[in-house]
Design a protein around this nucleic acid. Structure first.
Lengths: 229, 229
DNA sequence: CAGGGTTTTCGACTCTCGGGCATAAACTAC
DNA sequence: GTAGTTTATGCCCGAGAGTCGAAAACCCTG
């Protein structure tokens, strides 16, 4: 069963790159080569032998779309794809979050598109975008996942705007700050920020305490024996 | 970049098969062929062209370890593996949950091992078992994920025992029934069950209302505009 | 058949946390 | 200085989880 007569596949990585600029946006790449020439698709490419999947993903993000400052990179899922005329592809999807403020300078064929108003994308990649959005929505609800989308320093109003763009409904900045603050996920920096247009009380500046993913609720739907750790 | 000169990999699927029999156990397979001959590893095998990854996983589970009644099957992650001397492998890991009562008749080379006391497993598969356990722990806390581990009908005490085996700490049957019942995830069947040894009040028999995964809390860490749906 | 032991079930209570609201504070513009 | 805008702080309320005790249902023994 380990004989080399088995058919072989070409490993491919693709990323759903998400950022928030008022709206939730994803990065699409207009293909200039077959297959699916002149169609939009997710940025990505082939994996080299000896290369890790995540390494390949970062390489393609940096080389093809100029994305180097990735706030968070996470594998979504894999599936066997017959979308290529000659090759059997094994498609591994990633979710990449870009913090606000890190503006990658994009190659000409690459554009941000609002997730709520996507063009037609090839290879069934629209499903991957939907799953990525869904997973991100979950992450914001039970972790500090917004650290990878928010700028390094922000006001509670700005952070609430990030949540609103992802979740799709209004979020109260006061309550948001209290919840994240109680879990120790965000903390005030001491600085202040003035509102953009007309006057008002300057807002306190906050920052996430950690830049890696932390699950706030310790999965305690039921009681983890309060005494111990 | 789509030239067929790229190196190709052999897609492989592996499953962390978990069940609960008092303890949480996983299914390991003693390899009788190279590589890693006579070592324990996760059950799995090659993917055929034209076959979906999940289809290949189910095929191997049925053929190699006699597992046909899978309560839940879910992809974990993929990684590029250099563990084979001749082939470049692309390893896709799955989590498979076996309900209690469905006892697959195992081939001679296959055994259940308690997750807390594993033998040495090859190919770095120990990490996959850990990640599977971790994900399962999360599932039990915010979904009806236990439906795939529990028998079709059970008492609250029996269900609590399943939770304890996975979570590692005591769970109150009363509270568990109330929480899952309020969300409509479990419901009494009307039947009764007598305790095993000495007498006592017979316990009501319960069953999960759905046999697919349902996320109980609608990810509402913040307010989803109570009016609408 | 009465009584003790065992297990489950039900109800009441408490505590924490999310959400809402009103008020105070801080700043700008006129 | 006054009006207007925005943020911050405190308090209240309700929902839900966790605990506890008492009642219910059953078995076994004498």
């Amino acid at each position: 069963m380990s004989s080399p007569t088995h058919r072989l596949a070409a490993p491919v990585v693709n990323a759903v790159v998400l950022r928030v600029t008022g709206r939730l946006e994803t990065l699409l790449w207009r293909r200039s080569t077959p297959p699916a020439e002149d169609c939009w698709s997710l940025p990505g490419g082939f994996v080299r032998q000896g290369e890790s999947l995540e390494g390949a993903m970062r390489r393609h993000l940096a080389a093809k779309v100029g994305v180097t400052d990735v706030g968070h990179l996470e594998q979504l899922d894999s599936h066997s794809a017959e979308t290529h005329p000659e090759l059997w592809l094994l498609d591994v999807s990633y979710l990449a979050l870009i913090p606000r403020g890190a503006e990658p300078h994009l190659p000409p064929d690459t554009e941000w598109h609002p997730v709520e108003d996507l063009p037609t994308v090839a290879f069934g990649h629209a499903g991957a975008i939907g799953r990525a959005h869904e997973r991100l929505r979950g992450k914001l609800s039970y972790s500090n996942g917004a650290f990878a989308l928010a700028p390094p320093r922000f006001t509670l109003r700005e952070l609430a705007a990030v949540y609103e763009a992802v979740l799709g409904y209004a979020v109260d900045p006061t309550n948001l700050g209290r919840v994240l603050g109680r879990d120790g996920l965000v903390a005030p920096t001491g600085g202040q920020r003035r509102a953009g247009s007309s006057g008002g009380r300057p807002a306190a500046e906050f920052a996430f305490t950690r830049r890696e993913l932390v699950v706030s609720r310790p999965l305690a739907a039921f009681k983890p024996r309060d005494g111990g750790g």
